[in-house]
């Protein structure tokens, strides 16, 4: 027999449809009202013409866009190099912190000290210390400030990522290690094949969140001197006595973050769904 919804069920459908239409209309109306209020409030403010002139100047934007884009390419490159390195460093430090036994005390101490120190140290100071302090030692083969600044960003973010990885590792139930060890796997093999894959899956959303935050903080490299998007914008601002170049750089950073943010949201949603699969 084929199923046909009962009269009662059809009533429910009709009611829900009416409710849905009503809420869409309400949402549209309130969005429009808020939008108009904002527009009127901002453009009607006494200082608006001046703000528009010095922050949203199309001529200035067009003039400095190529330079800022050039600088932005440096940010992208730096991010593409630093993000995987920071993830690797974080993973390594997290695993080192989980090692047991007196033999590993120094390793554990270094890993723990590392996460304590670099999570507490402001990134700006770390960049200064690396980019200007290290070359001051006048050692042979001291790399470029770009490399040193990149290292500061990588090491700082590595310490945050290490803690996220560690939370993931500790969230895997000890019975999983027991099962792996009972099969004859060594601690390393149990970690690599059983614990880490589960840990990383679980903490993927917060890891990605830190990566999103990292993509904008690569802009702090400008403090060390290299001409990235922010430094170029600053040069543009100095040359034109206009703040529009900063707004241009800001838009570029937001555009770069968008795909990552969308991916993070998707992964978070998927993780939530798998965890609640049984409910």
């Amino acid at each position: 027999m084929t199923y046909a919804p009962s009269a009662r069920q059809q009533e429910r459908f009709a009611y829900r449809r009416r409710q849905a239409i009503r809420s869409v209309l309400l949402a549209a109306l309130s969005t429009a009202v808020v939008g108009v209020l904002f527009a009127v409030g901002i453009t009607g403010s006494p200082g608006w013409p001046r703000v528009k002139q010095s922050f949203l100047n199309v001529d200035v934007a067009t003039k400095y866009l190529p330079d800022i884009l050039d600088g932005f390419w440096l940010n992208i490159q730096l991010f593409l190099v630093c993000a995987p390195l920071a993830l690797l460093l974080g993973l390594l430090m997290a695993v080192l912190r989980t090692l047991r036994g007196p033999v590993f005390f120094p390793v554990r101490a270094i890993a723990t000290g590392y996460t304590y120190m670099f999570r507490g140290l402001p990134l700006i100071i770390t960049i200064y210390l690396f980019a200007f302090g290290l070359p001051g030692l006048r050692l042979q083969g001291t790399p470029d400030v770009l490399v040193l600044g990149g290292a500061a960003i990588t090491i700082t973010y590595g310490s945050y990522l290490a803690e996220v990885f560690r939370a993931g590792i500790e969230s895997v139930h000890p019975s999983q290690i027991a099962a792996a060890r009972s099969l004859g796997l060594s601690y390393r093999q149990a970690m690599r094949h059983v614990v880490l894959p589960q840990a990383v899956r679980r903490v993927a959303p917060p890891l990605l969140n830190d990566v999103v935050s990292m993509q904008k903080d690569v802009g702090l490299i400008s403090l060390a001197g290299p001409i990235d998007a922010i430094r170029s914008a600053q040069i543009g601002q100095a040359g034109s006595a206009n703040f529009t170049p900063y707004v241009v750089a800001a838009v570029l950073f937001i555009l770069l973050a968008l795909p990552l943010i969308v991916i993070t949201d998707r992964v978070t949603l998927r993780a939530a769904r798998t965890q609640n699969a049984g409910i």
């Binding site: 019975s175 027991a178 099962a179 009972s182 094949h193 589960q198």
Partner: peptide, 27 residues
Amino acid sequence: IGLVFQSYNLFPHMTVLDNITLAPTRV
């Protein structure tokens, strides 16, 4: 020595086949 647990302790991120072949291939 094989040990089987009360709560199975299968590896949730692996298929049944991968659970079984993990030790033979790795160990």
